[in-house]
Write a protein that binds this DNA or RNA. Structure first.
Length: 725
DNA sequence: TAGGGTTTT
């Protein structure tokens, strides 16, 4: 019996963290355990009088027909050609930096080669869940083994791996970091591969620093850092001059064409470029990179208009397709379908999703205006915001590469070669330099790292950012005066949540409302669930009214979630109510996970009941328990002033709050056309003084508007603290 | 009264 992977094998199998994978059998365990580490095909015994064929050393069974198909392709990959060199250099060095271009096969082949070379347990990290799943599936097929046994994967909510059998595990970088919570030397692995290291995600950066320390403690551990673009100096130097291996890719040539002179209106230039391609260049699909939803929808209508106006003159029409992550899945998937009508030229107008996360084959022309929205963090105001910025040279190369996946292509850069060299930074700023570090610091503390300032980050964050993070952890009760992790802090780190949300959950049983708080925590952890297509904005707003709790955006979110559950998580119902079903389904999963965690920690799951008049009051108090540092009081007309930082802000127009409460708590501060606070709830000022935190000690405030507002609030609510000078 | 790039636990 051969195991032929079918379409079903691609489906995601779900199992809980500690249970064995589906269909695991003792016989396979036996086979694997008795197997030698080097995997050379052996001969199978003759069965049923048939001839003896080559036999899969991992299973002892004859190979399937699919195996031979995949094997042929795999042997043609550049990495396969270099296999001996790769294995040798990894075995001889503790750390190796492997630079393999797109199409080299590094992600599928390197881990397997190392397994076959005798490593006992290998983890290979991926920045994205979908990559971990699809690569693990591919490798299991290539090795002709069942997914979840020898080869498996672990991502949040899904563990398709076996504690004993799995020897090659693909895992999201965040998940491996979590594993280090249980085992801070990651001692089950003798080889750890960090893939896509050039993306420099927060988790990969923390893992790199952590692993550098672990390497010193565990002389048997080997590590491979795999990266696509040239950052050789940076990676090699960081890992004490680790050797660099370079494997060529298999890409088709891409002709790069720069603008001859600077472009001032890139949207206009994009449109001109599409016309030029459509009217003069041979058939082939076009991919355009823009910065956001609004720009994309605008461009789509301009291009559709052009297509309608000129279809007769130029023969084939354009099929214009938007692509950004907030789009419903069904709309996103259209970019993979054949064009409609069949003779049309597809024009995909995308955000950065198309740069790394979503790969579309068959693109011949790429148009790159050279901008993207980037998250920036300002530690002095503690505001994270999005800013349209020039992309990096690395990013520009990545975009260009999207044109040469299946055949030679052209990339039109709407900036001059001079600008490319002098105005674009060589590399993107790693995320760790652009983020609020509260959770990173808490993670490091939990991992037992005491000297945070000297933690060996590849790019150390600004001291100010670290200090701000520590200060916040202190106010939240996660660390004490000696900057030691408290019991509360340990619990907060367990939760896969922003620490403020974790704190809200931990305090919620005290307010008799942990049930609602868990729902809210899940809703705050997923993207905005309210859809508002420009054409149907009024209708969408009207639908949202059905869920409104007039003094709280937080409570409104809880009501939306409950209504979603009441309607059986129905997608159609979501569509009718302009709600993002994907985000809501995700919230359902998160909620389930959080509830289990709460129960395991012995925290009470309680609710005042849906009809209780004080239900939303309790919830708003829970919110304040986590977000007490994000309150604001009404100043004048439309303006609020944030406490402590005294920033003048407006209520975001998406808020359900129509009156002007004197005090509010908010979830986030956004900087767009103005300064806004978004996801807001009314609070009673007296609650501030009942919080178990020093944050509202009047002594902590300099003379100013905030202090005066607090003094007034204290006086009005009869707080004795107001008497303090 | 307006916009949210992308990921992950």
């Amino acid at each position: 019996m051969t195991h032929v992977p079918s379409e079903d094998s691609h489906k995601i199998q779900v199992s809980t963290a500690k249970s064995p994978p589906p269909n695991s059998k003792r016989t396979i365990a036996h086979e694997l355990e008795s197997m030698e580490t080097s995997a050379r095909p052996s001969r199978c015994r003759e069965t049923n009088g048939g001839p003896a064929g080559p036999c899969n050393p991992w299973t002892g069974k004859p190979f399937s027909s699919l195996y031979y198909q995949l094997e042929e392709k795999r042997r043609a990959l550049p990495v396969f050609q270099e296999r001996e060199r790769i294995v040798e250099i990894v075995k001889r060095n503790r750390v190796v930096v492997l630079q393999g271009e797109t199409g080299s096969g590094k992600t599928t082949q390197v881990p397997r080669l190392l397994l076959e070379a005798g490593f006992q347990r290998i983890a290979c990290t991926q920045p994205r869940r979908i990559a971990a799943v699809s690569v693990a599936t591919r490798v299991a097929h290539e090795m002709d083994v069942r997914l979840g046994e020898l080869v498996g994967y672990t991502i949040r909510f899904e563990d398709v791996s076996h504690p004993k059998l799995t020897r090659l595990k693909y895992v999201t970088d965040g998940m491996l970091l979590r594993e280090a919570f249980q085992d801070d030397r990651l001692s089950r692995y003798d080889c750890i591969i960090l893939d896509e290291a050039h993306e420099r995600t927060l988790s990969t950066d923390v893992l790199m620093g952590l692993l550098k320390g672990i390497l010193k403690q565990r002389p048997e551990l080997h590590m491979v850092v795999m990266s696509a673009t040239l950052e050789r100096d940076h990676f090699c130097t960081y890992f004490d001059h680790a050797p660099l291996l370079n494997v060529s890719g298999r890409m088709h040539p891409v002709d790069i064409r720069f603008a001859e002179r600077p472009v001032f209106d890139y949207l206009f230039a994009v449109e001109q470029q599409v016309r030029q391609i459509h009217e003069n260049e041979p058939a082939g699909d076009v991919l355009i990179f823009l910065t956001g939803e609004e720009e994309i929808e605008d461009m789509c209508s301009r291009l559709r208009h052009y297509s309608r106006a000129t279809a007769r003159k130029h023969g084939a029409p354009l099929q214009v397709l938007p692509l950004y992550s907030a789009l419903p899945m069904s709309v996103q998937e259209r970019v993979f379908e054949p064009p409609r009508p069949p003779e049309a030229r597809k024009v995909i107008v995308a955000t950065n999703v198309a740069e790394t996360s979503i790969t579309i084959d068959g693109i011949t022309y790429v148009i790159d205006p050279g901008f993207a929205k980037v998250k920036i963090y300002n530690p002095s105001t503690r505001v994270e915001s999005l800013l349209v910025s020039p992309i990096s040279q690395d990013s520009a190369r990545q975009r260009a590469g999207r044109a040469g996946r299946t055949r030679p292509g052209i990339c039109y850069r709407l900036y001059t070669e001079e600008a490319f060299r002098t105005e674009l930074p060589a590399r993107s700023h790693p995320e760790i330099l652009r983020s609020n570090l509260c959770n990173v610091v808490l993670t490091l503390k939990k991992l037992g790292i005491h000297d945070l300032i000297h933690f060996d980050f590849m790019d150390p964050p600004a001291p100010d950012t670290m200090i701000r993070a520590l200060e916040m952890l202190f106010y939240l009760g996660a660390v004490d005066e000696e900057v030691e992790l408290t019991q509360l802090g340990r619990q907060m780190a367990e939760f896969p949540l922003d620490i403020q949300i974790a704190r809200m959950l931990l305090e919620s049983p005290r307010h008799g409302s942990s049930n609602e708080a868990i729902t809210l925590a899940a809703m705050l952890s997923v993207p905005n669930v309210f859809l508002r297509p420009r054409q149907q904005a009024d209708e969408a707003d009207a639908r949202k009214q059905r869920f409104v709790v007039s003094d709280s955006d937080h409570a409104t979110l809880v009501r939306v979630f409950e209504a979603f559950m009441d309607h059986g998580c129905d997608r159609q119902w979501c569509a009718e109510n302009y709600l993002n079903d994907r985000a809501l389904m995700h919230a359902v999963n998160i909620r389930r996970q959080l509830e289990l965690m709460m129960q395991r920690m012995g925290l009470r799951i309680c609710s005042p009941g849906r009809r209780a008049p004080d239900r939303w009051i309790r919830l708003r108090r829970c919110v304040l328990e986590g977000f007490f540092s994000q309150t604001a009081f009404w100043m004048r007309r439309r303006d609020y002033l944030t406490i402590r930082d005294e920033q003048l802000v407006g209520l975001h127009p998406s808020s359900v709050i129509r009156h002007r409460p004197s005090w509010v708590v908010f979830h986030e501060f956004v900087l767009t056309t103005g300064s806004y606070i978004r996801t807001v709830s009314q609070i009673e000022p007296k609650w501030l003084f009942e919080l178990p935190t020093k944050y509202y000690d009047l002594l902590e405030y300099k003379e100013g508007a905030s202090r005066r507002a607090l003094e007034l609030a204290a006086r009005l609510t009869g707080q004795r603290r107001s008497a303090a000078p």
